[in-house]
Design a protein around this nucleic acid. Sequence first.
DNA 1: AAACCCTTTGTAAGCGCTTACATTTTAGTG
DNA 2: CACTAAAATGTAAGCGCTTACAAAGGGTTT
Lengths: 333, 333
Amino acid sequence: MATIYEVSEAAGVSLATVSRVMNGNTKVSDRTRKKVETAMAKLGYQPNAIAQSLASNRTNSVGLLVSELHGSYFGDLMSTVEQALKQYGKHVIITAGHVDEKREHDAIEFLKSRRCDALILHAEAVSDEYLTTLCKSDLPVVVINRKVDGLDDHCFVVDNEKGGYLAAQAAIQQGHKEIGYISGPKFKKDASDRLAGHKRALTEAGIEAKDDHIFEGDFHESSGQEGMHYLKQHFPDITALICANDEMASGAMTAAREAGLEIPQHLSIVGFDNVLFSRYLYPKLTTINNPIQSLGEMAARWVLKNVYDTKINQAIEHLFVPEVVERHSLSKR
Amino acid sequence: MATIYEVSEAAGVSLATVSRVMNGNTKVSDRTRKKVETAMAKLGYQPNAIAQSLASNRTNSVGLLVSELHGSYFGDLMSTVEQALKQYGKHVIITAGHVDEKREHDAIEFLKSRRCDALILHAEAVSDEYLTTLCKSDLPVVVINRKVDGLDDHCFVVDNEKGGYLAAQAAIQQGHKEIGYISGPKFKKDASDRLAGHKRALTEAGIEAKDDHIFEGDFHESSGQEGMHYLKQHFPDITALICANDEMASGAMTAAREAGLEIPQHLSIVGFDNVLFSRYLYPKLTTINNPIQSLGEMAARWVLKNVYDTKINQAIEHLFVPEVVERHSLSKR
DNA sequence: AAACCCTTTGTAAGCGCTTACATTTTAGTG
DNA sequence: CACTAAAATGTAAGCGCTTACAAAGGGTTT
């Protein structure tokens, strides 16, 4: 693999000149530029990004931490972030934290050791303090889908409370009064926010928010099934079931069908996230759009603007408001 | 950020010694090791991976090219590869090629410029020649889900012909005789292989493989819908529909339902790939398991064994045989 | 033709590590 | 206790680039 030195020799110029035509920030006469370019082409020269990074202290890569590498939610996120950055010649280094404190921590350390120019974190397990410390360091960091007090400028979040509110409101507007809820793990901020919004909607509508109508799941499909069983067994008069994410909604649909209930005739179901497969479900799932792609794009934009001084004139937003996606799993009571 | 030099000063030893305790390949006395480790801890030292790579010509990272960053198929692949490599302290750098020759090419060049120690490629658009040249270079390369003549040791593939055969056979065994087929783009090897297997199964069963029963889709959901419309309109006596992947099967299911057909009572449907959401579909999709995870794991294992000299005693397989996953969308005629 | 300035190019010092080789220390031996 | 081999440590030369600074051209102006 040819080095810059060989190119400079072949072109009859100095190392510095070759470097200059590569980076294009200093003036080089057309004649020498041509010579260098010819030499590069002839040698099939490809700059060594590692050496460039070491010398320039710039890697042109952004670290992205997600919880998992699979699943539509993170797929969408990775995809959006990558697209947005690639446009400007920046690259993404992706790592998975698996919602485990140590593994998230290790993943972040890895990204730091790779000398990423900035970090975009979807961190669920590490502490607020850790994130705060990280943001205070000279490595630029943004946090996705999590609000950390004092780090507002670095956080990009969805109004989960509002989303929970909207889901309940949609059901209420269809005349439902006995509403079940399958929550995510309550220690997770997004789960508890969604639940809070749910309760607020009920209260505002004059419906008592009964705690025993709430089943705490784990955001996975199977707990949707469990929740469905539990609720239907104990509260057969429930006519609408709201789930804190689409996976659990899918599980609930399966369980409902197995119990001989038709959706939405016998039971309405509302999900949350609007992941890709929610439209593959039958009936197509009415859900709350979680604008994860907007989050990703905004985070990328923040990095481009603040780290790479890219001229971007679109505004940077930090709070995203979810919306109801009306499909076929919610109907009049 | 502390450097190795500061550590060596703090510990009262030379640079080389610090490097030695980091890499642990040369003997260092316990006493000095302790001193160095203390100094490291005190300074919060973190080696600069970039500098390490430049000096050692080793990046400990493997490049992974996928077609998309989203979708369960690639999600599964990325996840498996990452897990397998992480166990041995190796990292994955993921890029997307978007099934476009230039973009795949650029992505590979990017991985090369990052000086990955090896490349795992799910390349669909670049030419066989390009891959062959690549494999001949001194950068170790393996190819996933694509067979390139002369590169057998570097290829990890699924027997798509067999898969297509199994799908048709499954339908035939249930008594179906009028069988529609929605193919992927025929220029893609996997699509044409699956189709070939399909035809072979029909022929062996004494059923004429009618070309007009075959609709060429593009592997996306919408073309499943189109295919369904087309086939049902022209050949209403079709009782079973086999789709070359699950996305198209899902589209076909939707279209069938809209046309008032119940599945599988009126029409049986078989998919291919067994992606995650195929079990969310209703009815749960009978499909062909595409062992993409095994491919990923095997590719990772190959790299560990051949590039990093890891002691792995499991065998390396190159050909994976798909299997029928029986669920609820295929029934007796 | 000397003096000046602007543009283009070259020189060389690092970036933070690894590692071959040289040197010192330690332990073992008679 | 001197002598030697083995073990531990140090020295310094890179890895392939970037970039501050120096030097050299090339016009103008007087």
